[in-house]
């Protein structure tokens, strides 16, 4: 099989926050009935993470479960294991009204860190990303300028941003522009 390469091959930018194209990550899109114990158990058993509540992200080692909508989750895992994990989960959910798809190659992932990252984000998204509203372990499914995106905050206060691979270049330029040195909001 050909060698997989992420959309910007690890591009980085140092502005008033640091931005990095975070490389390849396994991403499994899962839809199903959150009220069904068999569904939540299968997802937690695969990842070792708790089942997230609305707008939450739960982490466990290489794995994370991100809330996407009232019937949709995104599981993050190691890129190499994504297809095997997706197959395993699909087998566990056989007979359930559920859908599992490996979407790793359809997405781009960016990491943003720095004290002022909220200032960079609030230029781009209509979601409230103030300290009171957006905390570690939370996810916001929203848009950044013209592109659909999901943003979640890790335990260390940095954020990861996911978008479609086809808008990966646009997203990187957008984030770099928002984080341009001298463009701090001074809040």
């Amino acid at each position: 099989m050909s060698e997989a390469i992420s959309v910007l091959n690890g591009a980085t930018f140092d502005g008033f926050v640091s931005i990095k194209e975070a490389g390849l990550r396994g991403m499994i899109s899962v839809r199903g009935d959150f009220a069904a114990a068999s569904f939540t158990k299968a997802v937690s058993a695969l990842t070792g993470a708790d089942f997230p509540a609305v707008n939450e992200a739960k982490f466990a080692g290489d794995y994370a479960i991100l809330w996407m909508s009232p019937d949709e989750l995104l599981i993050l895992c190691a890129y190499e294991n994504a297809q095997a994990d997706a197959d395993k989960l699909a087998a566990d959910l056989a007979g359930e009204h559920a859908l599992v798809a490996n979407v790793s190659d359809a997405r781009a992932l960016f990491a943003m860190s720095g004290e002022l990252l909220r200032e960079a984000l609030m230029k781009l998204t209509p979601a409230n990303v103030s300290e009171d509203a957006f905390k570690p372990g939370q996810v916001r499914r929203t848009r950044l300028a013209q592109a659909a995106a999901a943003v979640w905050m890790l335990e260390d206060g940095s954020v990861e941003i996911m978008c479609f691979r086809s808008v990966g270049d646009y997203m990187f330029k957008l984030l770099c522009n928002a984080a341009n040195p001298g463009a701090e909001l001074g809040l």
Binding site: V54, N55, S69, P126, A127, N128
Partner: peptide, 9 residues
């Protein structure tokens, strides 16, 4: 579900 957002979403 998500809270207050802009019309553009």
């Amino acid at each position: 579900v998500c809270g207050t957002r802009d019309e553009t979403e």
